[in-house]
């Protein structure tokens, strides 16, 4: 059940108060809101803006600048595949094409059943065991086509 607007406003208020006293608190606040809701609900913007005494446009601009922040919920699982050079040298482009075909979606899209969101990432620091992936925050190295299939099967269970 989705929480009501009043509930979410209260939760956002709690998050904001927990960050009072930090210098430049907007990024930690946005991370916390996204951790709580899975994305940054549009309702949150005016609440955050008023509490931090900045404009809604500023909050919106910051959300839009960073790749991590979502304005829509993601799928139940997020599969991030590294697209950077060290992974390219080990066939990441080929593996990514396989993942897109297997899931039937492109980058930044979610499968119709809501199970998996596919995202590119630029470097997970796993460049000596490339290609690399991050599945719901869990690191995976030496990702080939078979490993992608196994990961997809695992998150679809």
């Amino acid at each position: 059940m989705t929480p009501g607007i009043a509930d979410s406003a209260e939760q956002i208020g709690d998050i904001l108060r927990a960050h009072d006293g930090l210098e430049g608190p907007l990024l930690p606040v946005l991370h916390a809101v996204q951790a709580a809701f899975g994305y940054i609900p549009g309702d949150a913007l005016p609440v955050i803006a008023q509490h931090l005494n900045i404009s809604r446009a500023e909050v919106h601009g910051v959300i839009g600048f960073y790749h991590d922040f979502r304005e829509e919920p993601a799928g139940r699982h997020v599969l991030k595949l590294c697209r950077a050079e060290a992974c390219q040298a080990m066939g990441a482009d080929r593996v990514a094409a396989h993942a897109r075909d297997a899931l039937g979606i492109g980058w930044h899209q979610t499968t119709p059943d809501g199970a998996v969101t596919l995202e590119p990432v630029f470097c997970l620091g796993l460049c000596a065991c490339a290609p690399a992936a991050l599945v719901d925050g869990r690191v995976v190295g030496r990702v080939d086509e078979a490993r992608v299939d196994a990961l997809i099967a695992e998150v679809r269970l």
Partner: peptide, 12 residues
Amino acid sequence: DEGDSGTFADRM
């Protein structure tokens, strides 16, 4: 913010 591909010294 070690974003360069091929680097992982900071992470390590």
